[in-house]
């Protein structure tokens, strides 16, 4: 067990190193990425450029620059942006993270509850029009580009029908911190939550239904039926519990991806200053320190989630445990 954990840790460090080195190299290979002129300001004299180059260490060999950047990012945590001079990137991420976490947690709650309900109902009523209708709804959810859905939601709630009783409560775009105003936080996030959740409701309810349907053919389900348990009880106590293994592992990965910045389209459309939008801004500005920090942040989440899911599997599913 200990060995497995250590190996996992080694792999994680390797992956993080790989990503950071890759980001670093790609950045310096990109033409136009030299940040000196941007830091020095427009029309700065060559001497000022030289001063900036020395101050930021751009004249040093790449491995040294890489090491310095990693030190500033992880140890001293005083890495500053190349674009907004003087802006430290670590606190910037610390401020963006709660926004993304708020967005993703709310959406996750919605999609877990709704997809379990939809998946179970569909499986229970397999082959009926309810089943087909629910699954078609799910499919439509999967098929909508999230940024477009967000735009349409904005159009309806912010503009077209904002003056009607139905949507007059919707606040302007943007984020309200939970600590400042919980009710405002809720109102600002409700629509983004729903928009982000739609696709996942589709995926998860379909996966769950497929699993439940497949399980109904398994021996232990037949045994349960033979014991005379009620169909609802079988479905909920036996079927659903078993299906949760897949469900939870899928959820862990998606959740980590979203918290790590995968929700950027939703954040962009709803003007939420989260990690995804920060990453996107950093990328478009070729702001290496911020790119490095955000990519590391998201990689840590995803890699950790992968590890956690694998370990959970080890505990939850005897088949996997024995196979190792």
């Amino acid at each position: 067990m200990m060995m497995a954990l250590l190996r996992r840790l080694g792999q994680t460090v390797f992956v993080l190193f790989g990503i950071s080195a890759l980001v670093f190299l790609v950045f310096f290979a990109t033409p136009g990425a030299d940040p000196t002129a941007r830091i020095a300001g427009r029309n700065a004299s060559p001497q000022t450029m030289e001063k900036v180059r020395q101050e930021y260490g751009f004249d040093r060999p790449l491995p040294v620059q890489y090491a310095t950047m990693m030190k500033k990012l992880f140890i001293t945590q005083d890495l500053a942006s190349y674009v907004d001079r003087g802006e430290l990137v670590v606190p910037e991420i610390a401020r963006a993270a709660p926004v993304t976490v708020s967005l993703v947690c709310g959406a996750a709650l919605i999609w877990v509850v709704l997809s379990i309900a939809m998946g179970t109902i569909a499986a229970a009523m397999k082959g009926t029009w309810v089943d087909r209708g629910l699954m078609m709804l799910g499919l439509i959810g999967i098929s909508m580009p999230v940024f477009w859905l967000g735009q349409v939601a904005n159009l309806i709630t912010q503009s077209r029908y904002h003056d009607t009783w139905l949507f007059s409560w919707v606040p302007g775009l943007g984020y309200v911190p939970l600590t400042e105003n919980p009710w405002g936080w809720f109102k600002a996030l409700v629509i983004p939550w729903i928009v982000l959740a739609v696709m996942f409701i589709g995926i998860y309810s379909r996966v769950l239904r497929a699993d439940l349907v497949a399980l109904s053919g398994e021996d232990f389900m037949r045994t349960a039926r033979a014991k005379g348990l009620s169909p609802t009880r079988i479905l909920l106590r036996h079927g659903l519990r078993t299906s949760m293994v897949t469900f939870v592992s899928l959820f862990g990965l998606d959740f980590a991806q979203l918290v790590g910045g995968g929700a950027l389209l939703t954040e962009v459309v709803f003007g939420l200053p989260g990690v995804g939008r920060l990453t996107y801004q950093a990328l478009t500005n070729l702001d290496l320190p911020l790119i490095m920090a955000t990519v590391m942040y998201s990689a840590v989440f995803v890699v950790l989630a992968n590890a956690v899911v694998d370990i959970l599997y080890l505990f939850l599913d005897p088949r996997v445990r024995d196979a190792r």
């Binding site: 020095a40 700065a44 004299s45 001497q47 000022t48």
Partner: peptide
Amino acid sequence: VGSPTAGPYYS
């Protein structure tokens, strides 16, 4: 501090 205009304006 290496002001951007140190060269163009105050040299």
